[in-house]
Amino acid sequence: MVSGLIFLVISLYFLVPLGATFYWSLRGEKDVLGLEAYRKLFADTNFLPAFSESIINAVATILLSLLIVVPTAYWVTLRLPKLRPIVEFITLLPFVIPAIVLVFGIIRLYSRPPLLLTATYDSSRVLLICVYVALSFPYMFRSVDNGLRAIDVRTLTEAAQSLGANWGTILFRVIFPNIRVALLSGALLTFAIVIGELTIALYMAQHTLGPYMANLTRSKVYEPSAMAIVAFAITWAAMGIIDFIGRGSSKRIANTE
């Protein structure tokens, strides 16, 4: 009874604002409930460039982050378990440093020679992706680390070695396929963060989705709600994919231990 009540209150806490936002997004046309706000949003010439730029940034961030985090987490699990607390601490730093502090630090550091990276839009974009990679560490490292802990990394590695496999084969044919849910989960969390990130992109004068949304709220009434619903749908689609792929894989790993 009490737990049911708590569930109801929590559900309302989430669902009422969401429902209200969705309802507001349908009121783009006077006295009619419809998808006018969505139509206007997608028709806006600034929306798709911002959206595609954010997606490209997100994909680049994911690739770079995977390239750094997976070998690090694998090596820490396999050979340097004593370093785990240090690596965990480093990956948690983005949680400790506020985004506003981070962005001003970056601008100060990279606005003068020899590391002048804010001179052009494209070099700033590269810098932004590097910052996003650092921001993704807490999510990516934790996801990958959990995935590696779920399998017997050491024994699988040794089994593959005894069969003649080199490090590349071990990583790509044995380890990656068995932690693909973890990789996907880290990737999609990173995707969700990069897609909605505002502070750093705004101060680095990037035309991504975050600044676009902030700008939208200043000039439009219904489109920001439509944009919020679209962003929410993307995030939930990402979570749904993680859950769907994770179901079969966890069963497979649990039964071979």
């Binding site: 399998i151 017997d152 699988l156 089994a159 069969l163 071979t256």
Partner: peptide
């Protein structure tokens, strides 16, 4: 060739 206590078969 090596055989391990935990089988070490590749789950994938």
């Amino acid at each position: 060739g090596m055989i391990f206590q935990s089988y070490a078969l590749f789950p994938n």
